[in-house]
Design a protein around this nucleic acid. Structure first.
Lengths: 145, 145
DNA sequence: TTATAAAATTGTAATCATTACAAACTTGAA
DNA sequence: TTCAAGTTTGTAATGATTACAATTTTATAA
């Protein structure tokens, strides 16, 4: 609680019951939840909590750099309190999203290469899709998404 | 026309007026169009064309591997006939999407590294966002998205 | 403490891309 | 020519996100 407050402050975010709850949830659940999951988890302890507040709060977090948004799932935006550079893998079958390390050299490409020198790059998102360990498929049968 | 037909055949896609038109449009417009742009461009020459057909057709193309879908724009899915590995940059101001080369070493990471050996990786999407050459910003004023 | 303005939260309604679905149309093989 | 499978079409439904205005909370200063 106190920690979360200070954590938000580091990003210039003023604390509130709702903001602390959302941030705390993200810090404790590195499962890349979407708005609905966050709402479901919190509205029992904060009955007045509105979904709009969660949308507002997450937008604020993302703009402040405290949280990163993940577009790997076409259905809905997912959120991640881990703001260190890393990639994500999404299983087409069970939809789990797994964090993956990426060698620094791969990230450095975007900041060092001459090719990109005219661009002001702010975010890098690396998304892999396929089938996870438990959902391996033979190349023949391809149905789901 | 004949070329496009053969191109589709390479991916096991049976031709039709609509499929050829959509594929031809994508091959000639490497601007990462969305469904609406494709529809607007084509429905004057094919007045009966339905938007649903474009959705169906693009889904088929993506599943067949003839086209790749790009999730860099939260608003809508974009499509790219360039299926060779490359990255995309999206400007937060003018929303242009630019193709970027990525060193092979960076792509090879995902196929070679031991870290990913349990995963059956099918697609890799690398998305950068920020401000393009013409929309450079000083770090202070941050508004749009 | 009280008054007041600014900021944050809330609920409802609107938006809009995408999907579901069933009817109509095309195509190609028997 | 017939028939079934595959395609296309239009309409309706879905559902995540945003717009917006009203209410509540917070911070500030008299």
């Amino acid at each position: 609680m106190e920690y979360t407050k200070e954590y938000l402050a580091e990003f210039g975010i003023k604390p509130s019951i709702q903001r602390i709850a959302v941030m705390k949830y993200l810090l404790n659940h590195k499962t890349h939840p979407n708005v609905d999951e966050i709402y479901m988890a919190l509205h029992s302890t904060i009955p007045t909590l509105s979904k709009t507040t969660i949308y507002n709060t997450l937008s604020l977090f993302v703009e402040s750099g405290a949280v990163s948004s993940i577009n790997i799932d076409k259905r809905n935006i997912r959120y991640d309190a881990d703001i260190k550079p890393h990639a994500h893998f999404r299983c087409k079958n069970c939809h789990i999203i797994i964090d993956l390390p990426v060698p620094n050299v791969c990230h450095e490409v975007f900041s060092i290469s001459d090719i990109y020198k005219d661009l002001q790059i702010q975010d890098v998102e690396i998304s892999l899709t396929g089938y996870c360990q438990h959902c391996q498929k033979d190349e023949l049968s391809e149905t789901e998404e």
